[in-house]
């Protein structure tokens, strides 16, 4: 399907989240982590998933959140929502991989995670595995400019950026030079 789209437009996929339908099963986390394992499906670990279900059954809080952008520093001002009489924690709806919390980071390296809409699959797998339709997909066509390239590089950039924050740009450059020499 994607191939037939002409060059100036692109299918934009939106994952719609209906928190009233979520039952907290975390199947979405399971399949996401399996899909992104190397090789594909070779391991499982919800802590590596790019979707997280914020789940507090006793307060009836169920918020599936898809990982968005990486951010260097946490927000200075934050929001607290109350919806239908339920108060949600600060940051509950935020998609950022942010220093203030554990969400959306590789558990061992601490590198940020970002949802890539299951690149290469016909449909996002978390949507496919959510049989109760808390997650559904909506597609629309939109005109865009030459995004392809930048999308491909985006992952790399995010990773590098966070490494740079963690170790400093100089160190990263040092390592790159050394790696280059070895080859």
């Amino acid at each position: 399907m994607d191939n037939q789209v002409d060059q100036t437009s692109k299918i934009i996929k939106t994952i719609k989240i209906d928190i009233d339908k979520c039952n907290g099963c975390r199947a979405c986390e399971v399949i996401c982590s399996a899909f992104h394992a190397m090789p594909k499906y070779s391991s499982n670990n919800p802590a590596r998933s790019r979707i997280r279900v914020i789940r507090e059954p006793l307060r009836d809080v169920y918020v599936p959140v898809l990982a968005g952008e990486y951010t260097v520093s946490e927000c200075a001002g934050r929001d607290k929502y109350t919806i239908d009489g339920k108060q949600y924690e600060e940051c509950a709806f935020c998609r950022a991989s942010c220093p203030s919390r554990e969400e959306f980071k590789e558990p061992d390296s601490g590198l940020p995670l970002k949802c890539d809409m299951c690149e290469g699959e016909d449909e996002p797998l978390c949507v496919k595995w959510c049989l109760v339709d808390a997650l559904t997909i909506e597609e629309r066509q939109e005109k865009v400019e030459d995004l392809e390239q930048s999308l491909a590089l985006e992952d790399l950039e995010i990773g590098l950026e966070s490494l740079a924050d963690k170790f400093g740009m100089d160190k990263i450059m040092d390592v790159l030079v050394r790696m280059n020499e070895k080859e």
Binding site: S43, N45, R48
Partner: peptide, 21 residues
């Protein structure tokens, strides 16, 4: 726990899981 559980034959296993769904 935040560690991995490994699968012996990943693609076959996933096909079985999808079959169940």
């Amino acid at each position: 726990g935040t560690m991995d559980i490994n699968i012996a034959k990943p693609l076959e296993y996933m096909e079985l899981c999808n079959g169940v769904l």
